[in-house]
Design a protein around this nucleic acid. Structure first.
Lengths: 378, 378
DNA sequence: TTGTAAGCGTTATCAT
DNA sequence: ATGATAACGCTTACAA
């Protein structure tokens, strides 16, 4: 470590306080003190240098930047000018160490490329920036183990709170959060029964209602282009919603009419083909996420299936293209922005000691479009 | 600040070193020392507590976690066990302060929701995590002023390097980076003449070549569904590429065949309508970004225009849907992943003192699909 | 191999 | 309103 070669008795002693002392109270020629020689030994200018050049104590400089009202007009302007001239930028690490606050919030998302998460992150970012916080971002790639490691690292980095996705975490993570008493929220889920605050849609209910909507349209033969439920409690809850609604009416779903995949238009196409391969094919197809839905729709058209006359296709998450395709798609709209914004507000509120610890359910609205209609007579 | 109420002469003095000392060397019943009373006064356990409980010096604990080889087998396992039992997590701020390194890298993107940026961020994230760094993320919303503020804040937060998008920054930012000697890269651009390292495609060249490709197909009447060049040097460079190619062949573009917007399928539709409103409409439409392109394509179909027989439509950025629409779209493929990954590698390399300061051009490949063809005879 | 203690750049307490 | 200085929790130079 530079500048630590010799044990110094005291800081002042190490720096000849000769010419500078004279310059200190000089009025305008601040440029003079910018002379390299003045900041000898140290690589970066620090608050101490500002104080020295401005001829005040470090305490005063600290006050001047953190609560200017505590400092006299005169000193304040003098200090500001020195800061500008010296180009000083406060050191976040030192500040964090002294205050025990980092003004940083961490988030671990399964992926950053899915539209809904991207939107939530954007909103999160906006909101946090506005409130003076910074976002530390990590990615779990849908692996609980990795989520744990990342969350841990974020806590080491000093985040004051954590945003997670879903309610199912590695047990180590839950333990860790509990014993360290880390403030966090589970986003994109709503299930007050779980441990921790949650902010998001009730995934089960959303698909329960969507399925009911189709049942009410007379459909009885259903197909599923589902998203894998592996390490994905949201997908799991959605599937549960479908099954709950069907069970209520005593409708069974044929196993061959269920295909499970991950993500992507092309994958949606393939899964769709698999589902409709077994005649008679379903009159209603429910898709697990946005891009699977788009794929299913595109493939249905390529196959010459008339939608919604022969078959209804519905999806989850309302991305722009759903409304722009030749046959606009019925889907569930969740405001990811809202999830992100709410999460940010909640955490910042709690950190400021306000806001009670409550859960927040985001609306999941069914947007009915041309892709769904009454079940065909046959 | 807690625990700072009374001036303490020395730390040890403040803590009765009675019973504990005896426990220190006790073999298995480590649980005993977990007793709250042992960590009195302090809210969080610290390295000192670990050292005390393990009966070693703080230096040894530090070594044990940072370079285990420096510590004897015996102490190492003892320390590890104490760490686990105490649930200690090192304090990043303190470590950053002491080492003058934060293992953190900052990025400021115009937006997080565009597919290309999201992909780059994802890659960035992966790569950085792998190398032991964490990503601090910020968002400029395409505003140079905000980019400056965010970058500054990231530097305050102690990032060791910065990833920016584009080469045109606020002058304050350029100054700031220069005087603070901040390591950074301009991503998504390739222009070795600018200040700073750049990693990305040569936007001008890419569209120059795409335009040439269309010219070679016999097109002479061009239309533009352009992305606004406001605060967007990439869009500007792309436009320049188009104009360069056209100028070379003496082809002029009719002002009424140019429409400028931002982003989104719907916007693409509107702009497209505007462009084709002026008969005879262009035989080739070049679009400024992915979603504008999709919009143009969708609208052309809604209007009953035959593509590519009557009109060729080409875009920029190869997102999945381009290849999945009924008429797959010719476009320029830029590997955003590569941009992100390269940027991360470059910065980490430089921080480790390897890697020379060189620019890196990412390939921008023309993916010819069904949406482009020979100009119609008429 | 291990310990001692200075030092990282701030903030905050206490005294003036 | 301002100054002096301990403290924040770690790393590391130097001594043993």
């Amino acid at each position: 470590m530079k500048g630590r070669k010799q044990k110094q008795v005291g800081r002042k002693a190490a720096r000849p306080a000769n010419v500078r002392e004279a310059l200190v109270r000089a009025k305008p020629p601040l440029e003079l003190v910018l002379d390299k020689a003045d900041i000898e030994g140290r690589v970066n200018v620090g608050l101490r240098d500002v104080a020295r050049v401005a001829g005040v104590s470090t305490a005063t400089v600290s006050r001047a930047i953190n609560d200017p009202r505590l400092v006299s007009e005169e000193l304040r302007t003098r200090i500001d000018s020195v800061i500008r001239h010296l180009g000083w930028v406060p050191d976040g690490a030192a500040r964090a160490l002294a205050t025990r606050r980092s003004a940083t919030i961490g988030a671990v998302f399964p992926t950053l490329t899915h539209g809904d998460f991207a939107r939530a992150i954007q909103a999160l970012q906006d909101e946090l920036t506005q409130k003076g916080y910074t976002l530390l971002l990590a990615c779990s790639e849908y692996k609980p183990e990795q989520e744990y490691r990342q969350a841990r690292k974020l806590v080491e980095r000093g985040v004051e709170a954590l945003i997670l996705v879903g309610e199912a975490h590695a047990p180590e993570l839950t333990d860790f959060l509990l014993t360290r008493k880390v403030l966090y929220v589970n986003s994109f889920v709503y299930n007050p029964k779980t441990h921790g605050t949650c902010i998001g849609p009730d995934n089960r209910k959303a698909l329960y209602r969507l399925t009911k909507y189709l049942i009410d349209l007379g459909h009885t033969r259903f197909g599923l282009v589902a998203q894998s439920t592996l390490n994905n409690d949201r997908a799991q809850a959605r599937l549960q919603g479908v099954h709950d609604a069907l069970a209520e009416r005593g409708i069974a779903i044929q196993p061959s009419h269920v295909a499970e995949g991950y993500w992507g238009i092309n994958e949606g196409r393939q899964l769709f083909r698999r589902v409709v391969a077994n005649k008679p094919f379903p009159t209603a197809i429910i898709c697990g996420n946005a891009y699977l839905t788009v794929g299913a729709m595109l493939e249905s058209q390529a196959m010459g299936i008339r939608v919604p006359e022969q078959m209804s296709i519905v999806g989850y998450d309302d991305i722009e293209i759903m409304n722009e395709l030749p046959i606009p798609i019925t889907t569930v709209r969740v405001s990811s922005d809202e999830v992100g914004r709410r999460a940010a507000r909640f955490l910042v509120g709690r950190l400021d000691g306000q806001a009670p610890d409550m859960n927040f359910e985001c609306e999941a609205e069914i947007i009915a479009r041309a892709s769904s209609g009454p079940a065909p007579a046959g």
